[in-house]
Design a protein around this nucleic acid. Sequence first.
DNA 1: TTCCAGGCTATGT
DNA 2: ACATAGCATGGA
Length: 286
Amino acid sequence: MIYKLDKNKILVLDKTQFNPEHILECGQVFRYGKDENNNYFVISKNHKATIVEYPDYYEINSDDPNYFVNYFDLNTDYNKIKQHLKQNKTMSPMIDFGYGIRILKADPEEIIYAFIISQNNNIKRIQKIIDKMCSVGEKCNGYNAFPTSKILCNEPEEFFANLGAGYRDKFLKQTAETLSKINIDDIKNLSTDKLYDYLLSLKGIGPKVASCILLFGFGRTNKFPVDTWIEQVYYNHFSKEKRTRPEIQKYLEDEFKDYSGLAQQYLFYYERSNPTKNKRTDGISL
DNA sequence: TTCCAGGCTATGT
DNA sequence: ACATAGCATGGA
């Protein structure tokens, strides 16, 4: 038990396994920021939470505490998981660096669109594009909800063309049309392999994006998405042996099994916070 | 100017 | 099955 509910507030009582900066800046969601009081906030679907820090605890203020108990995965003991992962000597210092990371239970549809946008892109621009998409989302108290697929599929071509998403605009439009015709609950319980194949059938979704969606949108923690950053981590901290991205993914999933997703977040956060000076993508020693 | 960013599609072999 | 050019946009 690391939290307690106090009316409409959640009090997170264990700061060793909850840190808003670690959670939000490790690249799993994009609709977050700091408000005028320097407090982190995050928007998920049609809900918003603000996190206020106190000396011995964090206070989560939101429009729906129950939603955010699940969203922040507060019933899972991450200290136990970290202890297990620390058996890997490479991981250990990286876990100490991002000790407060948690895998969020984000909205699947929102994650699908967000990670289609993410391909061959940078986080600043991803956030900008998503923000623009949300201009057509349901108006909530001081923010816009992420637009539903039904809303998106009724938007004209120009809407997608003007997002600044570049060539990804047609992927977003096609995905909106496809997803508006299905119920996400119908695919939510598919096996990981079947769900993976379904995601790959959508235009703009390849192995890496599908892995991110499985991990962040559908809670499949045995997935280890490999992007440019993880590729760097692999060559700099795990092995000099040249491998393709799918091979690196298999290598790391074999190593971390059901904890792959969380392990990936520690590595991603660490590498992005401490960029390797001499980039090396070919596996050859400098 | 060129390179890069949470890669993928299309089009070759 | 594997390799790679081309891709929109903006910041370094």
